[in-house]
Amino acid sequence: MTQKQAIQLFEERKVRTVWDDASETWYFSVIDVVGILTDSPDPKRYWSVLKSRIKKEGGGEPTTICSTLKMPAPDGKMRLTDVADAQQLFRLIQSIPSPKAEPFKQWMAQIASDRLDQMQDPELSIEQAMIDYKRLGYSDNWINQRLKSIEVRKLLTDEWKRGGVDGTQYATLTDIITMEWAGRTTKAYKRYKGLKKENLRDNMTNVELLLNSLAEASATELSRNENPKGFKANANVAKRGGTVARVARQQLEHQLGHSVVSPLNARQYLGTLPDNPASETAYLTSTEKTTKPIICDDSEDINK
């Protein structure tokens, strides 16, 4: 069951959502919706009271009102929280007196329509990613490079799969490539830029992004030429792909007189960005759905 996390915006307010490919359904964070509709300083408390009231009024058990999924919490960790699909959310909205109820319903309908359109025409997903990056302040040139880097990365992982590499080993191969051209593992590179959960590529400069793409594209072409089988052979190809980018980096740095591996992250060179930028997270990040039946509780603080 493939799911894709996304941060949607309603009147500049964030709503965490998850799209489930199998059921073609959006799930919305109930806490986020309650906060928007009520402007309550404590939406978690408001939701807890509302659940009790609905149950007493015969509106059904909490498990029929909402489900529970892992979503990114304010601290960046994935934590269980109550979610509802569109039908469940319409029921909840009817229980909340708010002048925003009708506009919110229309917004939900548009979100669902847009996603279904994107499934029929993948180019729309790319266009949406461009809009999201643009909103965050990235330049057109950077956006074009970033979208191209996504394609380059996909071609590389396809090669790894063809070469018999297990998906759990992709991170290790990526570290080999990054270490070779940038002199740092992915984790160390993120620390260097002051990142935690953020996407490293979303925080690369134009030059860093180009060099990373050069390394991955080189590894892909070497793989196609040599047809390596197994992890060890693919690791060797990954290292050599990284070497191509390292040589290019060294030549450029010799001309510039300084390193092009920058400690700057997107917040620093673009200004203050919203938390949890949509970008690739909206369309490419898979998460595991919690299918265990749980009586919906105010469980956002559960560290799972």
Rank of each mutant, 00 (worst) to 15 (best):
S98P: 05
R91P: 01
K105N: 12
R91N: 05
P99E: 05
E102L: 03
M108C: 11
Q120F: 06
Q118G: 06
Q106H: 07
Q110T: 13
K105E: 00
S98N: 06
F104A: 02
L116T: 10
I111Q: 13
Q110S: 14
I96W: 09
D114R: 13
S95Y: 11
I111P: 04
Q110L: 13
I111E: 03
W107E: 00
S113Y: 05
Q110P: 02
I93V: 10
R115Y: 06
P99Y: 11
D117L: 12
Q120C: 08
W107V: 02
S113V: 12
R91L: 10
K100P: 00
K100L: 12
R91D: 06
F104H: 02
Q106E: 15
A109E: 07
S113M: 10
P103V: 06
Q106Y: 08
A101T: 03
I93W: 04
S98M: 07
S98G: 07
I96A: 05
Q118L: 08
F90I: 09
A101F: 01
S113W: 00
R91Q: 14
M108E: 01
P99G: 07
M108F: 06
S98I: 08
D114T: 05
I96S: 04
A112R: 04
Q110A: 10
L116P: 03
I111R: 11
F104Q: 02
Q120K: 14
P99R: 12
Q120S: 13
F90C: 03
Q94G: 15
Q120Y: 11
K100M: 11
Q110V: 12
A109N: 12
P103K: 03
R91T: 08
D121I: 10
S95K: 15
L116K: 06
E102P: 00
D114I: 08
Q120P: 05
Q118P: 03
A109I: 15
L92K: 07
R115I: 00
R115F: 09
S98Q: 06
S113Q: 10
K105H: 03
D114W: 01
I96C: 06
Q94I: 08
D121C: 11
I96N: 01
L116R: 14
R115L: 02
P103G: 08
L92G: 06
